[in-house]
Amino acid sequence: MRADLDIIQEWIRPGSRVLDLGCGNGDLLEWLREHKQVSGYGLEIDPDNIARCIERGVNVIEQDLDKGLGNFASDSFDVVIMTQALQAVHYPDQLLKEMLRVGRECIITFPNFGHWRCRWYLASKGRMPVSEFLPYTWYSTPNIHFCTFEDFENLCRELHIEVKKRLAVDHKHRHGPASRLWPNMFGEIGIYRIAGAAKQR
């Protein structure tokens, strides 16, 4: 299983009801079902990923996240997960609110544009960073809403979202002392557990 998913699964209680936004090939949901008796659904739009989910018996619903989560009832899931998709949706703030409406809490991962390599690339070359981890050119990329950890946490404050837990890791999902001390500089991927203000428990 992908390293970030391995971190996320530790944050999910056995028997939870989970909604996985952009569930990919169903790795996480299958693992959670097998090992933690978790039930739920994945949302996905990529045909190959959907085919793979169906093949392995993972509940997958073909649905575009940009069209919202209006078909899911409020508080109908224990956890709503979204890995590496926040930067690719049209309205990240709206989707965050929707996720917190539907789930009691959310787990979100996204790349940190404030990482020192991005900063260095932009400062030294004066061009948008392209790397092995973020390989897209600015004009042809699914990632239309990059942000830094600072940006994300600011948005959380604005939306009265409580950050319950945060882990800054590198692109191999290791976390060392540097990313713990200066996450916005040395963390490449942020893994956040958040809850809505009204639902703080």
Partner: peptide
């Protein structure tokens, strides 16, 4: 699909 999700049934939709 929405009704099935609300009823907590296993469902896939393509």
């Amino acid at each position: 699909v929405q009704a099935l999700v609300a009823a907590r049934k296993n469902v896939s939709y393509v």
